[in-house]
Design a binder for these strands. Structure first.
Length: 317
DNA sequence: CGCCTTTGACCTGCGC
DNA sequence: GCGCAGGTCAAAGGCG
């Protein structure tokens, strides 16, 4: 409806990705590598099993390498698209005048960055002053009469568990809830948070469930942090935003770098592993992510349990 | 004890 | 000026 939003979709549903590329290969390789985790044939020696496990480990390593390369390629593609998007926005906003329908409350009159995370895909969209909110069906027109008109506003959509009724969006910062209000056009209440790390930090956060899809939390950030992102000494930097995709059994983890002080137009950062892993911390983090992903895989855990139980059964008198 | 959440009251801007 | 609606305050209570 005359909206100047420009959306760039980036499908990060790694599970479906895997199902296309990796599963096919798994089918082929599983024919060649029979793995007898149950130890039915006790004649197989431990050496044979070790070699089988080594082969499986090598296969997983290769698959990991392949997926890492794919993610790198996707990240590069995303960067390219983002730069193109920035150019398109620059040309569009220069010529486009806002057409605001009159509403009871004035719409946000400041720059806004949207980072929409729904169903495992990221939609980064930007609008300029007075250009947005005209097509909003969620009723998220917030007033900010006292705020600096140039206050940065960013939105993050996070899919949560349907059973999760809390209005909490973990982003690595420490927030203090100071209010909750039921708004007119959304049955779910809106929670108001302030950054509690620094008393002088002007950043505020509003969290409300999507009126159309209650499983999606809409977090609206206003302002920029005037401190580093170290809410607590033991708190890791920007915690991953978990998007529990309904179409995949295990959640896809995407980190939105909301802590970036320069988070502004066309500056959404999606962190992804690069080809060269130089930082030991990053390497450790990736290893933890891999371990987490493996342990969430029911097939892997059942196979592991079967292997362990098989070994125990064979070694028992 | 300190920090946090909850929640009703109050404040403020806007449309009529 | 009045009413509405969003935003904020602050007291009370919970929790570790």
């Amino acid at each position: 409806m005359g909206s100047s939003w420009i959306n760039a979709n980036l499908d990060l549903n790694l599970n479906s990705f895997r199902s296309q590329a990796a599963v096919k290969e798994e089918k082929e390789e599983h024919v060649n590598i029979p793995i007898n985790f149950m130890g039915v044939g006790n004649k197989i020696s431990l050496n044979d099993e070790a070699s089988v496990l080594k082969a499986e480990l090598n296969r997983l390593k290769e698959e990991n390498m392949r997926l890492t390369n794919m993610i790198s390629t996707m990240t590069e593609d995303y960067t390219t698209l983002q730069s193109r998007l920035g150019m398109v926005v620059a040309t569009n906003t220069a010529s486009e005048l806002p057409l605001l329908p009159s509403r009871k409350r004035k719409a946000e009159n400041n720059q806004e960055v949207k980072s929409d995370l729904v169903n495992g895909s990221i939609i980064c969209s930007m609008n300029n002053d007075n250009a947005g909110e005209s097509s909003s069906s969620e009723g998220d027109s917030f007033k900010k009469p006292k705020e600096d008109p140039k206050t940065k506003v960013s939105k993050v959509y996070v899919r949560t568990e349907p059973s999760d009724t809390s209005l909490v969006v973990k982003d690595g910062y420490q927030w203090r809830k100071y209010g909750q209000k039921v708004t007119r056009d959304n049955p779910s209440p809106r929670a108001y948070y302030r950054c509690s790390y620094a008393p002088s930090c002007p950043v505020k956060k509003k969290v409300q469930r999507n009126a159309e899809d209650p499983s999606v939390l809409v977090a609206t950030y206003e302002g920029e942090h005037n401190h580093t992102n170290c809410a607590k000494p033991d708190t890791p930097p920007p915690a991953p935003v978990l998007i529990n995709s309904t179409s995949s059994p295990s959640p896809t983890v995407v980190t939105l770098d909301l802590a970036q002080p320069g988070l502004s137009q066309s500056n959404c950062v999606v962190r992804a592993p690069r080809r060269e892993i130089k930082s030991p911390k990053l390497e450790k983090h990736l290893m933890e992510q891999m371990a987490s992903t493996l342990t969430r895989d029911p097939g892997f855990t059942s196979a592991l349990a079967a292997a362990i139980s098989g070994i125990i059964m064979r070694n028992s008198p």
